[in-house]
């Protein structure tokens, strides 16, 4: 049974984003790969062939594209695929130690899945959250930020009980209630957008 057989509306929706041409069909390749991986945890060879047929290309091309990007997997991952950012900004915040701790305490090497099927680990490059280092991503679910030893222990404990905490999305708040930016000292300086003069939405309005 093919994966997309029962998901025609989804497939149609994905194709509708791109031009109705051979090139446009090919554009659906990455979204389709993402669909399969999110559902099955990896993309098998038969799924590659299925996607190739949908996109009007060959399994060779699908594998080639897939292997180019670092977040697609050809092997099954654990239920919780822990991806630790290892690039400099996280490394300066101890990402290497976080990694070593995970590998050691979960007893799982990259490419492996822990015996209970729960965990797999991957070192990844900059996740774009350098202000909240170190950062870890779980599966395709989102970021866990400022993962210090204490927080790491909490997360692992929750995952072992299959209670995945919600991802973090700490938003850097730089603007106070009055719309002015706040210095490190707590002092609000500058002005607020409300003080700026907005141009009228329609031409010919008074200036």
């Amino acid at each position: 049974m093919t994966y997309f057989e029962t998901k025609q509306p989804l497939v149609a929706d994905i194709f509708s984003r791109y031009p109705d041409s051979p090139q446009g069909r090919r554009s659906a390749l990455m979204p389709l790969l993402r669909e399969v991986q999110d559902a099955e945890g990896f993309v098998s060879e038969s799924r590659m062939a299925e996607i190739a047929a949908l996109c009007g290309t060959t399994a060779t091309e699908v594998r080639s594209v897939m292997s180019f990007y670092s977040t697609y997997h050809t092997l099954p991952t654990g239920k919780y695929h822990l991806q630790v950012c290892s690039t400099l900004m996280c490394a300066l915040a101890g990402a290497d130690e976080l990694w070593d701790h995970l590998v050691e305490s979960l007893d799982v090497q990259p490419g492996e899945v822990s015996p209970d099927g729960r965990f797999s680990v991957q070192k990844v490059e900059c996740l774009g959250s350098c202000g909240t280092a170190p950062v870890m991503q779980i599966g395709d679910d989102g970021y866990y930020e400022n993962v210090g030893p204490g927080k790491c222990a909490q997360i692992l404990e929750s995952l072992r009980n299959d209670l995945q905490p919600l991802p973090d999305n700490p938003v850097p708040v730089t603007v106070g209630d009055d719309g002015r930016q706040v210095l490190a000292t707590g002092q609000a300086v500058g002005s607020s957008v409300t003080g700026l003069h907005r141009l009228p939405g329609h031409a010919g309005g008074d200036a």
């Binding site: 060959t58 060779t60 699908v62 080639s64 180019f68």
Partner: peptide, 20 residues
């Protein structure tokens, strides 16, 4: 006009292969 051979992986790990 056959897409039967392509690079797999990237960077220093790149190699050619077919999946056909």
């Amino acid at each position: 006009g056959q897409e039967v051979l392509d690079f797999i992986e990237r960077g220093g790990h790149t190699f050619i292969d077919t999946q056909e």
